[in-house]
Nucleic acid binder design. Structure first.
Length: 255
DNA sequence: ATGGCGGTGTAACACCGA
């Protein structure tokens, strides 16, 4: 089974990209972030025609998550019981026995910002929730835009990003709590070296210079990680006309 | 040091993202 995550930066603007990518990638499940659309306006019929069921939790302008799946989705939930939140950043569903959690972690803006405190609180409560999900499910996959570069090898210019939001110690510690719980960074099961990124700024020809960050991750519970066959970042749609600034990440798991 | 690009809302720019 192929499962992917992609921050599309508006599903309205990127609809043709998503359809084209579904057609070429042939994934079974696609987790989307930054859909930026109200539930009533989500283009579910378009995806149904392409062979995908939709689950979504959206809002106007900001945030918004969705899961597209070729297989039935069970136990769909859009809230962390430990963290009441108006911002639509979470969507979980069980597909083929795997508990899938689609996340759009807050950006944090800067270390001085209230948004940074919100990010750390949000992550703390998220870890709590994931601990609980692990008690009730063996195969858990957390896919999404974590807005955290876990290590210096995930950053193009580490000295420039040191202590900066997305690469700060507290954020990395929060990410580390998930790995301490037993979650494995799927990409690192197969690739040790740096210079693999999933986000490139629109400005300064960052993509052409490969000046990026690895912010989009797939974390797998240990039993699921043992059945992970591959994890890749697909840079192709980042090269299309009017792209999202993020690239999709795909894992292949044995079910 | 600053803004650079792009989406959204709304109708010239502000806000936000990462």
């Amino acid at each position: 089974m192929k499962i992917a995550t992609w921050n599309v930066n508006s599903i309205r603007t990127r609809l043709s990209h998503v359809l084209r990518w579904l057609d070429t990638s042939q994934v079974d499940v696609l987790c989307l972030q930054e859909t930026k659309i109200l539930d009533a306006q989500f283009p579910r019929a378009v995806f149904e025609e392409a062979g995908y069921l939709s689950a979504y939790s959206g809002q106007k302008m900001y945030n918004g998550v969705a899961i597209l799946s070729r297989h039935p989705m069970l136990e769909v939930t859009s809230d962390n019981p430990f963290f009441p939140d108006e911002q639509r950043r979470i969507l979980a569903a069980t597909v083929a026995g795997i508990r899938l959690v689609c996340v759009y972690v807050p950006n944090g803006q800067s270390l001085e910002s209230d948004k940074y405190a919100y990010k750390l609180n949000w992550l703390g409560a998220f870890c709590q929730w994931m601990a609980e999900e692990c008690n009730t499910h063996t195969d858990v996959a957390i896919l999404g835009d974590y807005n955290i570069a876990p290590e210096d090898r995930d950053v193009c210019e580490p000295e420039k990003w040191q202590g900066h939001v997305l690469a700060s110690d507290a954020e990395r510690t929060a990410f580390g709590r998930l790995t301490q719980m037993g979650f494995k960074d799927a990409f690192r099961l197969f690739h040790e070296e740096g210079a693999h990124y999933s986000w490139w700024d629109y400005r300064q020809r960052s993509f052409q210079r490969n000046a990026g960050l690895r912010l989009d991750h797939v974390l797998l519970s240990s039993p699921l990680a043992e059945r992970c066959l591959s994890c890749t970042i697909d840079r192709t749609p980042r090269q299309w006309e009017k792209p999202s600034d993020h690239a999709p990440v795909i894992v292949e798991v044995d079910v």
